[in-house]
């Protein structure tokens, strides 16, 4: 009798998964697959609409346009992996940007020092977010909603609300916008810095104990704590590292825009969250990765570029991104129900 049941079980284990189940398993194992497929599809569609879309020129422009959002998305990914959310991304970047630009242009602080001060301020801002989340035990949504207003206000008050053009800024601050060519592609120093940041943070996430603890804390904080993970310290480090990355994004934004403008990155919050979510990282924490966020940021930018090259009203971009976010979260919910 027992042999017949185990044979039945073995039969069940060997059963053919339906094609849909196989897709589910694949996406579960490789969360960056869906944004990759999506990116390939959008590239094909926009190339059909306007063949110029695939040209090295257009693709270089795409990379330059998404560099800042892609950079912010690194920090956002870390926070979302811990089941948090950071609504203060844009505000922290603007604060760092206005402080470094004002120091250099108005107070005659040397460029490099001004950048260091701005980035340090962003680290402090991240640390404050982390402190409020881990020590005061406030939900990340509320903390960053509050600091969004606080940091924006400080940035506007400090800078007087006016832009600072790049002719008033030291070279080192504009260097992130400098272009160079590789085989027909025009890249900026800013793009290179962003790609390097992806490599470094990606390594830390996938190859170090810290990275595993980030996933563990996001997936099940209580189990992580009982397993010996210093959950609060991990969370604090995540918000602090995110702040550092937002500070570097501020520097890249100055180079990209050719100015420090208080309303320079109006869609930073929504776009960075969109990039992370489309990139296959779960809003519920513990699942996802950094490669997906890079692909997600490029997809968000691809809609802007592709639609304008196709001569379509930009409002369609907003609509398409909205649909994508909802689809991406639905797919995530489905993937989470995966069974062996």
């Amino acid at each position: 009798m027992s042999s017949s049941t185990s044979a039945a079980a073995a039969e069940f284990a060997r059963r053919q998964h339906s094609p849909l189940q196989r897709v589910q398993h694949l996406l579960h194992g490789y969360p960056w697959l869906s944004p990759l497929v999506l990116l390939v599809l959008t590239t094909i569609v926009f190339t059909i609409l306007n063949p110029r879309y695939i040209s090295p020129n257009a693709q270089s422009l795409l990379l330059q346009q998404v560099a800042v959002i892609a950079c912010l998305a690194i920090g956002q990914t870390l926070v979302i992996l811990t089941a948090g959310i950071d609504l203060s991304v844009g505000a922290v970047a603007i604060l760092a940007m206005m402080v470094m630009a004002t120091l250099a242009a108005e107070n005659g602080v040397p460029g490099l020092l001004a950048i260091v001060i701005g980035v340090t301020l962003a680290v402090g801002a991240g640390l404050l977010n982390g402190f409020l989340v881990t020590r005061v035990n406030l939900p990340p949504f509320i903390v960053t909603l509050g600091t969004l207003s606080i940091f924006t206000a400080i940035a506007l008050l400090y800078s007087g609300g006016s832009s600072i053009q790049n002719n008033r800024l030291p070279d080192i601050m504009n260097v992130t916008g400098r272009t160079f060519s590789i085989g027909g592609f025009r890249l900026t120093i800013g793009v290179v810095i962003v790609l390097a940041l992806y490599a470094i943070v990606g390594f830390a996430l996938s190859q170090t104990a810290w990275g595993r603890h980030v996933f563990a804390v996001g997936d099940d904080p209580e189990s992580a704590r009982l397993s010996g993970v210093a959950s609060k310290r991990v969370l604090l480090s995540v918000y602090t590292v995110a702040g550092l990355i937002y500070g570097l994004a501020a520097w890249i934004q100055i180079g990209r825009a050719g100015a420090a403008t208080p309303n320079g990155i109006p869609d930073a919050n929504l776009d960075s969250i969109t990039a992370v979510v489309i990139g296959g990282t779960s809003l519920f924490g513990g699942r996802g990765g950094l490669i997906g966020s890079l692909l997600g940021a490029i997809i968000v930018g691809a809609f802007t570029l592709g639609l304008s090259l196709a001569g379509v009203d930009q409002q369609w971009r907003l609509l398409a991104i909205g649909v994508l976010v909802i689809v991406a979260v639905s797919v995530d919910q489905w993937i989470r129900r995966v069974k062996a």
């Binding site: 104990a209 099940d220 992580a224 513990g286």
Partner: peptide, 19 residues
């Protein structure tokens, strides 16, 4: 509650916090 992390693999769970 077992204190295992569902999303991590078996080896990662065994060595969690003592990697």
């Amino acid at each position: 509650q077992l204190a295992v992390i569902p999303a991590l693999d078996i080896a990662s769970n065994l060595y969690l916090a003592r990697e």
